[in-house]
Nucleic acid binder design. Structure first.
Lengths: 112, 112
DNA sequence: GCTTGACACCTAGTGACGCGAGGCCTAGCA
DNA sequence: TGCTAGGCCTCGCGTCACTAGGTGTCAAGC
C-alpha cells in the first residue's frame, strides 16, 4: 500500500470505526487491520495524533476506563463527529467516482 | 473535495491520462478536469512538478512540439511507466476495497 | 526473579507532496 | 493598450502520515 495514499482519508476511517461504538486507540488500530484484511496496519504514532486532532476539533470525546489494571481512553463520536462522518463519506464517494471516471476513459496502457 | 485526498493518487491519475497518448502539461489539467466532471481542477503548480518527478523516475519522457508559436512539451509513457500504471491501478483497487470494507461494517452513524 | 511480548498510552521530528503565489512568454481580441 | 487564454516554470508553505523513541501494566516462559 502506497505510503501517501491514506492522506486525507484517515479521518474518515477513524470516524467510521468510532461510529460503531466507544473504542480506544489501540482498538482502532486492531479494528482497522481486521476490517481491511491487513491492508491498514497503522502505527500508534499515526493513530493517536489523529484521535487528538479529531477531539480538539470537537468530533470525538473521551472518557477513561480501567479494566484489570489497564487504563483505556474510550472515544465516542460527538454529534458534530457524526455529521462530519456523513460529509466525509459523501466526499469519499465523490473522490472515488472522480478517479474511476478518469481511469475508465484510459482503460489500460496501450502497448504502443 | 478534501485538500489532502489526492495525496498519493496523483501519479496514478497523471499516468492514466498520459497512457491515452502524448499530452502536454496544460492538457493534463484540462483532461483531468473534464473526465472528473470538474472534481479535479488542479493548479499548474501541482501538475508540472508531478510530470517532472515522473520523468526523473523514468516513467515519462517528453519531446517538444511547436504549433503556431506555442511550444508544448509532449509527454509520453515509457515502458516502465506503463508497468507502473498497472501497479498503481492494482494498488488503487486494493486501497478502495480496504476503505470500503471498513465503511461497510460501520454503515452509518447510529443516532444513539 | 527476570525477560519478553502484548496491551495501552504519549510526543517530537522528519519527509513527502499538493498547492498557492509568483514569474516568463506568445497569440488573439476588444 | 490591456486583458484573457494558452503554455511553461519554481519557491515556499502547511498538512499530515510515519519513524523513533519514551512510559507503564500484565501474563507467560525460562
Amino acid at each position: 500500500m502506497n505510503a501517501e495514499s491514506l492522506k486525507g482519508h484517515l479521518d474518515l476511517l477513524v470516524l467510521a470505526v468510532t461510529s460503531a461504538g466507544p473504542i480506544h486507540g489501540y482498538g482502532v488500530i486492531e479494528r482497522l487491520r481486521e476490517r481491511s484484511q491487513g491492508s491498514f496496519d497503522l502505527a500508534e504514532g499515526t493513530v493517536y495524533p489523529v484521535l487528538h486532532r479529531l477531539e480538539r476539533a470537537g468530533l470525538l470525546e473521551h472518557e477513561w476506563s480501567e479494566a484489570s489494571g489497564r487504563r483505556r481512553k474510550l472515544y465516542r463520536l460527538t454529534p458534530a463527529g457524526q455529521a462530519r462522518l456523513v460529509e466525509q463519506r459523501a466526499g469519499w464517494r465523490e473522490f472515488v467516482d472522480a478517479v474511476e471516471s478518469v481511469l475508465r476513459r484510459n482503460p489500460w496502457p496501450q502497448t504502443a
